[in-house]
Amino acid sequence: MSGNESKFSSELVAKVNELWKRYPHKKAALIPAMHLIQAERDGWFSDETVADTAALFGLPDMHVRGVVGFYDMFHSEPVGRHVVRLCKTLSCKLRGADGLIQHVNERYGVKNGETTQDGCFTFKHFECLGHCANAPMMLVDDEKHLDLTADKLDSVLGGLS
């Protein structure tokens, strides 16, 4: 319905069309589609992106806004070129996540939710990412880094551009 008028790239619209085929209702494909949309729109949902998404799905924009607000994987504020999610749930916490958080705060000058001055990465505390056996761990964009130490963390973050 909104294929021709969509504000998104034709590749993205084609992928969303594929997603729609998998579900009985278009609305059911919202979350996987929103991951694609977020990637195309600089990693976050501006009011405009929310409105465009709502138009693509034929939903009220406030419904999309609610989904963005609910899930931590979606951002309602601009983010850096990379997103670093450091797990702080039980296993990681017991294995030293607090120290790593403090290390990031001091070394890179960013607290939870903040972006480095050069716009390189946005740092986020995160709830359990499911790698308790290799705690502490973090996710940099889609890549996981396990059994972290301060040194290992620095080498990963230092390699980001």
């Binding site: 924009d61 406030m62 609610g66 607000g69």
Partner: peptide, 9 residues
């Protein structure tokens, strides 16, 4: 008018 939504969780 679909004006309200719930933010966060």
């Amino acid at each position: 008018t679909d004006e309200i939504s719930i933010d966060h969780r």
